[in-house]
Nucleic acid binder design. Structure first.
Lengths: 111, 111
DNA sequence: TATATTTGCAACCAATTGGTTTCTTATATA
DNA sequence: TATATAAGAAACCAATTGGTTGCAAATATA
């Protein structure tokens, strides 16, 4: 069974769960109240998110609080880095072009 | 049929295709040579990536060159922003803690 | 202690996914 | 013009996915 962070965030409900518990740790029941689905379905999503370590759990009596594992989220940032490099390069190229236009413009003015 | 960028990058082959054509535009055949799969399978991946506009195509004779649509990649960055805020806040909190420890340390020294 | 609550787990089901094979269209080349 | 090449489209298939129902275990409460 493939279980990686990209697979995990492919599901919109799981992305919503991540956004929800990013603010505060929550129990499966409390999370499920926010969706039009059963507790068991949410529980399955939580299992998948836990398996790829995007969230962590903390038992408190018979309740289990789930919260975001922010360190793991940084892996998306790491993956994006290669593409960020590309769009920053393109931005710099545009920037260079603009400054060239600017300087040629001022040259024109000087004439 | 759900067709969004999160769904699109969930597949490892599609992520590899994105990384591949980020460097230079390529034809389906050329792309397929890099994977242990058929051209048709790659073609289906390309269709999915095209449908959610992560890549664009340019016809050249009977060949079609696929290349990255870098603007669309920024949407991941946008999604990540909410989480980046969180880890930056935590970093600042740690930073504050460290400077407090630092200042109390120097106070001790002054004694 | 008996009952209620919170939760995870397993079995099952329909829909989706990634892949293959086959076919057609369009362009290049002998 | 006949043949070869590049590529999309459709039909089909096995595996996976997201969801449901039912059940068992652990903890809280009357």
């Amino acid at each position: 069974m493939r279980r990686d962070i990209f697979q995990a965030i492919a599901d919109p409900t799981r992305r919503a769960i991540l956004a929800l518990i990013a603010l505060q740790a929550m129990t499966p029941n409390a999370i499920a109240e926010n969706f039009n689905t059963t507790r068991q379905a949410v529980s399955k999503h939580l299992r998948i998110l836990t398996e790829c370590q995007l969230i962590k759990q903390k038992q408190q009596g018979r309740e289990i609080y789930y919260s975001l594992e922010i360190e793991k989220m940084k892996e998306f940032d790491k993956w994006l880095e290669q593409y960020r490099k590309i769009w920053e390069t393109r931005f710099n190229q545009l920037d260079n072009l603009l400054s060239k236009m600017q300087s040629s413009k001022s040259k024109t003015r000087k004439k």
